[in-house]
């Protein structure tokens, strides 16, 4: 009798603690498919903080599709080469090498960051930054951070055109080393923004964001 009552108590405790644990989990991941906080490791440790934050490169410089296409797009490896043909490592590392070389009285060696080697590999370049026909071109397998389900058709163009800041949906990317999904990107989140902007406008400009289903689902 006692043991069975004890068992009941234990079972109840287990149930309660399981609910608490699951409840916490469900608060974090409220929806199946909700990837808020998703921060995948990328094949190259590209730092948005450095590029978009410190160097203040405009988002649209790399993600040039944002105002012309549905997809903002991921820059081609060739675009990186606009800078990284010369910048082969962090300025600190390059400066250090120059100083070391000066001290040693030798010509400075090229310094190549191991991360940028991956970029050069993808372009099939050899050590001297020349195209190596023996190497195959390989696109960099970036991991998509912001994924929408296939049945919702998001288009960057009207958002960019209306003047919505990239950060409103993507979070303060310029402060992130590795990009993280900040918003939950749920339908309610989209719809609420559409409702609010429909009243408040964007930067004081009147906009007409639609809350029709067919604005996204077709």
């Amino acid at each position: 009798m006692l043991s069975s009552r004890l068992l009941t108590v234990v079972l109840l405790l287990v149930l309660v603690s399981a609910s608490v644990v699951l409840g916490v989990r469900f608060r974090n991941y409220s929806l199946p498919g909700n990837q808020q906080g998703y921060e995948p490791v990328q094949p190259i440790t590209f730092s948005h903080r450095l590029h978009a934050g410190d160097l203040q490169i405009a988002c649209i410089y790399c993600h040039s599709g944002a105002d012309r296409s549905r997809h903002a797009g991921i820059p081609a490896s060739s675009l990186c080469m606009n800078c990284h043909r010369l910048v082969t490592a962090s300025p600190d590392a390059m400066l250090q090498e120059v100083q070391q070389a000066r001290q040693a009285g030798r010509p400075p060696q090229p310094v190549v960051s191991p991360e940028l080697v991956k970029l050069y590999d993808s372009l099939g370049l050899d050590d001297k930054m020349q195209s190596d026909p023996a190497k195959k071109l390989r696109p960099i397998p970036w991991v998509k951070v912001h994924n929408l389900p296939d049945f919702s058709c998001f288009d960057h163009r009207p958002h960019v055109h209306a003047g919505v800041e990239c950060q409103e949906c993507h979070g303060p990317v310029q402060t992130m080393e590795r990009v993280r999904q900040v918003q939950d990107l749920s339908m309610g989140w989209c719809v609420n923004c559409h409702r609010e902007k429909g009243i408040a406008g964007v930067d004081g400009k009147q906009v007409k964001p639609s809350t029709d289903c067919a604005a996204c689902h077709y």
Binding site: P32, G65, R68, S69, G73, S77, L137, P139, W142, V143
Partner: peptide
């Protein structure tokens, strides 16, 4: 809760006259 990892492969050399998605 975790959707499968999706990769996004960009061009290696961007064709000048082509914008993906258009």
């Amino acid at each position: 809760q975790r959707a499968p990892v999706q990769h996004a492969l960009a061009y290696v050399n961007q064709p000048g006259d082509l914008i993906p998605g258009r």
